[in-house]
Design a protein around this nucleic acid. Structure first.
Length: 307
RNA sequence: CGCGGGGUAGAGCAGUUGGCAGCUCGCCAGGCCCAUAACCUGGAGGUCGUCGGUUCAAGUCCGACCCCCGCAA
């Protein structure tokens, strides 16, 4: 006897969770629901979301509803009579009518310690805000985003060198590791959902590339965190000589001997540095000029003697 | 065929109106020094993305193709 599951997910974040359920005998994944293929990249090639790739590798049925709100989706999903709907970074708001379908419940795996960081950019937001820890919340879903009662939470320390990517990957694995046991225990009534403290809720928005433009009037600490948080997506960047330069990795220096104005990039003692709003400087360690591959500051300086 | 930048030494770049291929690092050898990632001297290393065309002569001009990257999605 195993629990039947319909899995909702789209991005890389959801892949470890899906694989964890597939590998566990206690569960039977009946189908995968994911976003439609989208034109992606420089040549706008139609590309399947990562979850679809994983699903197809495992010969699972895949549904890609344009709108999960459509009655067609509701009818299709009702036929599975699933015990669980498991949702991880699906990308669409799921209506109450669909959430009501599973016998045991609709479960969400979210990459923050709710009620903190409800929304799409929870990983980047936690690093950028300077949080000491991040985590995974497994929760019962309701119709509001990341709003339902909490079943299980696991924290992980945010390290000084964590990037959006490293923390994202760690959280994805953490969620996947806990998910099977949490589902099993919840089904057996051993875990009771606890209502979130909604007065402490914070939200984070979906990030766009423009959000990565560095505001050099901020403190060096803030900017350094932003750069780590937004690496590799949406990436932190600045404009220098009318060219966009992505800033990939920095280190905080103290106050410089001969500072320049905020946001001006220059070489000093063979280091590439920029002054921030608090007059502390950031040493740029890795960067990527527009049209070039990512490189170290040393490589950049080798070919740019004017700095 | 969405817009744009680019492929030149191991790395990052320069190369003027076609005329012997350079710069900063790195690397190798030697020197200096208590010592060094510092300094001095010498050295190796490039079919200039590929194919074709124009020319006495092509990194440079013309055509086609391959690859990398930024934007946009």
């Amino acid at each position: 006897m195993s629990y039947s599951i319909v899995f909702f997910g789209t991005s890389d974040f959801a892949v470890p969770s899906l694989k964890a359920l597939l590998a566990d005998q206690r569960f039977d994944v009946k189908a995968v629901v994911t976003q439609p293929d989208q034109p992606v990249g420089r040549h706008q090639v139609m590309t399947a979301p990562p979850i679809k790739v994983t699903a197809q590798e495992n010969k699972l049925a895949v549904f890609q509803f344009e709108k999960i709100k459509d009655t067609e989706a509701l009818k299709t999903l009702a036929d599975f009579k699933a015990d669980f709907f498991v949702v991880a970074s699906y990308g669409q708001i799921i209506p109450q009518s669909v959430l009501d379908l599973p016998n045991i419940g609709p479960i969400n795996v979210h990459g923050s310690l709710l009620p903190k960081w409800r929304g799409a950019s929870c990983v980047q937001s936690a690093i950028a805000a300077g949080d000491k820890e991040a985590g995974i919340t497994i929760m019962l879903m309701d119709a509001l985003m990341d709003h339902g009662p909490i079943i299980s939470q696991t924290a992980t320390e945010i390290l000084a060198d964590d990037t959006g990517e490293s923390l994202h990957d760690r959280l994805a694995e953490l969620g996947a590791r806990n998910l099977p046991d949490v589902l099993n225990q919840f089904a057996q009534g051993k875990l009771k959902p606890v209502e979130q403290d909604h007065t402490k809720a914070t939200a984070c928005k979906l990030l766009k590339r423009d959000d990565g433009k560095i505001d050099w009037s901020k403190s060096a600490e803030e900017i350094e965190r932003l750069i780590r948080a937004y690496n590799p997506w949406p990436s932190a960047w600045m404009i220098s000589n009318k060219k966009r330069i992505k800033i990939l990795k920095t280190r905080i220096l103290g106050v410089l001997k001969s500072p320049r104005r905020h946001g001006e990039i220059f070489a000093q003692d063979e280091k590439l540095v920029v002054n921030c709003g608090d007059n502390k400087a950031l040493e740029i360690l890795e960067l990527q000029p527009e049209g070039k591959k990512a490189m170290t500051a040393k490589q950049f300086l080798a070919g740019n003697h004017s700095f």
